[in-house]
């Protein structure tokens, strides 16, 4: 039964393919990373910053960013925070369960544009998940980029995602990885404060006119961060952010995620700030 579900590879973009859950890693109290294996064994090809529509059978479908390719298998990883019916169901899956998947969709991080330039990556909370594939790509091609800074903020130390990988990143000497939390008890010896404040700690090594920035996190965090970056002379067309406003079809047909001329699912979710500045003014979404 499982095999026959898995073997059906639909051509219809509305029809999900069944992927097997191979691993579930609890990240924090409400967040887990699930690895999903494609049925054909060919691996899963995606661009950093793209997302998939994950369908929890009989419950519903939600957009979730790809947070990585699993090292040990050809599985594709998604880091999911349990906030409602579908995401709750996805975070309590077990290896051997099945998830329907459509994707990958959308435009990801412009890693090519950042080549030969300084790169600042700013993540807030779960925002590190869509950025992780970009960060891994930069590490794998470190010589292509000039100065690289990764700035990451969460609510408390217990909310830090990908802890072991984060510690490995922090141990490297060829880039800056700074972490801050909004609150902590006195056992935390690191930065306390919001993530835009970390920009001040790396600005001296950046050349603003030649810097690209990738931002992902709650919209208000991106708004504050984008202001800080622009104030330092980083051009708005080189500040990219991932807009995760809700969507349904993911193929620019239903109009659910359409704002003026833009479909978040197809034209995004990653946009240059200069293109979506007007959206930040829209309050009812």
């Amino acid at each position: 039964m499982r095999e026959s579900v898995a073997a059906a590879v639909p051509a219809d973009p509305f029809l999900p393919t069944a992927f097997a859950v191979t691993r579930v890693q609890r990240e924090t109290g409400d967040t887990a990373t699930i690895a999903l294996r494609p049925p054909d064994g060919d691996g899963f090809v995606f661009q950093p910053g793209q997302f998939n529509m994950l369908y929890l059978f009989g419950v519903g479908e939600v957009p979730i960013s790809v947070s990585g390719a699993s090292d040990r298998s050809d599985a594709v990883e998604h880091t999911i925070r349990s906030v409602g019916t579908v995401t709750r169901g996805l975070t309590v899956l077990r290896p051997g369960d099945w998830v329907g998947l459509r994707g990958p969709f959308g435009r990801g991080w412009p890693l090519d544009e950042a080549k030969g330039r300084d790169l600042v990556i700013v993540a807030g909370g779960l925002g590190l998940a869509p950025l992780r594939p970009a960060i891994r790509h930069v590490l794998a091609h470190r010589a292509d980029y000039r100065h690289v800074a990764v700035l990451y903020g969460t609510r408390t130390p217990a909310d830090l995602l990908f802890r072991r990988e984060l510690e490995r990143w922090r141990g490297r000497l060829d880039w800056d990885v700074l972490v801050t939390v909004d609150r902590a008890d006195p056992t935390w010896r690191g930065n306390i404060g919001v993530v835009p404040r970390l920009i001040g700690q790396v600005e001296r090594v950046l050349e603003p006119a030649n810097t690209v920035a990738f931002l992902c996190g709650p919209e208000i965090m991106m708004r504050f961060t984008e202001r800080e970056l622009r104030q330092r002379g980083i051009p708005p067309e080189r500040i990219y952010l991932s807009l995760e406003r809700n969507m349904k079809c993911a193929i620019a047909m239903c109009g659910h995620c359409q704002y003026g001329p833009l479909f978040i699912c197809k034209d995004g979710p990653v946009f240059p700030y200069s293109q979506i500045e007007f959206l930040f003014e829209v309050r009812e979404i």
Partner: peptide, 9 residues
């Protein structure tokens, strides 16, 4: 911004 507790569930 810190007071807003933007990462709260």
């Amino acid at each position: 911004l810190q007071l807003l507790d933007i990462y709260a569930p």
